[in-house]
Write a protein that binds this DNA or RNA. Structure first.
Lengths: 196, 196
DNA sequence: CTAAAAAGTTGAACCAGATTAACTTTTTTA
DNA sequence: TAAAAAAGTTAATCTGGTTCAACTTTTTAG
């Protein structure tokens, strides 16, 4: 095991699937450690997202920009989470999203080719990716329920509750667009909360 | 190969992963053919969703009911699609959703135990479930983008466009709640479209 | 076949959240 | 470290979509 970043990823993997030392090391050897400065893009429309990114330190935001110029946050990700444009990554097609570093960050990148190779090489590696995708699927259903059933105010309250570590690391306009409201309205909600 | 329903599922599976005859037949043998009458529930809050359901004929709708009594459609599913409460199914916990037959339907059900067994038994079976989950993940991201970036009117237009086969098979109030609007408002949108 | 229930329609009043605009605070960069 | 840019705030006004209520049409069950 080489260093702290790979230790983090190792723990993340072993938490999902039991690998012996050799299996683990081979899997880890397919990842590439990358340091990314704040405000740097790791995915951009017009290019293909060729990597799946595991965050060791730092924070990212993925978003789409619509015709009018507004952007809409799709996902936030901090330590121990993954981020990419999955439609682009899985289907090797052009990205429609930006993925932007919100802080100086350290990530471990897995290329599509290496991922495909790992999935073929060993049933257990395949299991890891299957579990990751199933958890994402379950997560998205829960998120969809929240979005459909709650008001803007309650979606903000829920976010505070579920992701207290994220709230203070992301710009407010990005959080507002993630929650499906304007930055002005979120400002009001915050103010209203603070004064009661 | 026993009949038309299993043929459908076979095609669906072979479309995702190459299996030889024995592998395919063993996988198929884990499914149970069930006929469901219109208005029958196959998943209900308070019970655990023990099956993943492949639809051979018919149509289903999953929804949650909130305190005020309104329901919110989470998913529609017709022939060649899957439906269940995935949070309940994957984690063997109580369902929060209803899954209701909108028509007399024929489904092929796979139990959690059989699915777990299949995933362990053969790398290729695992691959099948991994691909299914990844596609669902990609689908949910596209859906999230639509929901965040489009107005109610445009979400309806997009639905018409993408799922013309579904529109006329589901009650309008269910479609309205799927699209995140009231049934009255959807009625107005339809009327407006019809008259221009 | 018929009565009752469920689904869909229409219009008026209303409201959660958007828009616009002017301003303050924080962050960035030269 | 200063000035410019970006982010956040506040308030007035506006609107896409909701709510409520009365009605018509369709579906269901006896």
């Amino acid at each position: 095991m080489q260093n702290q970043e790979f230790e983090m990823l190792a723990e993340h993997i072993l938490n999902r699937v039991p690998l012996n030392v050799d299996e683990l090391n081979f899997m880890l050897s397919q990842f590439k450690l990358t340091r990314v400065k704040k405000r740097q893009f790791i995915v951009q429309p017009g290019f293909t997202a060729n990597y799946r990114n595991f965050i060791c330190a730092g924070a990212f935001r993925s978003y789409v920009v619509i015709d009018s110029g507004e952007d809409h946050t799709i996902q936030f990700a901090i330590e121990d989470w993954w981020i990419t444009d999955y439609n682009s990554y899985f289907n090797a097609e052009q990205a429609t999203m930006f993925v932007l570093a919100l802080e100086d960050s350290t990530i471990l990148q897995l290329s599509r080719e290496n991922e495909d190779m790992l999935k073929l090489a060993n049933h257990k590696y395949e299991t890891f990716f299957r579990i990751s995708a199933e958890r994402a699927q379950a997560f998205h259903f829960r998120q969809l329920i929240t979005n459909l059933t709650q008001t803007a105010e309650f979606r903000y309250e829920s976010f505070l509750d579920k992701y207290p570590k994220i709230v203070n690391r992301v710009p407010q306009y990005a959080l507002a667009s993630y929650l499906g409201m304007t930055t002005e309205y979120l400002s009001k909600l915050r103010n209203k909360r603070a004064t009661k």
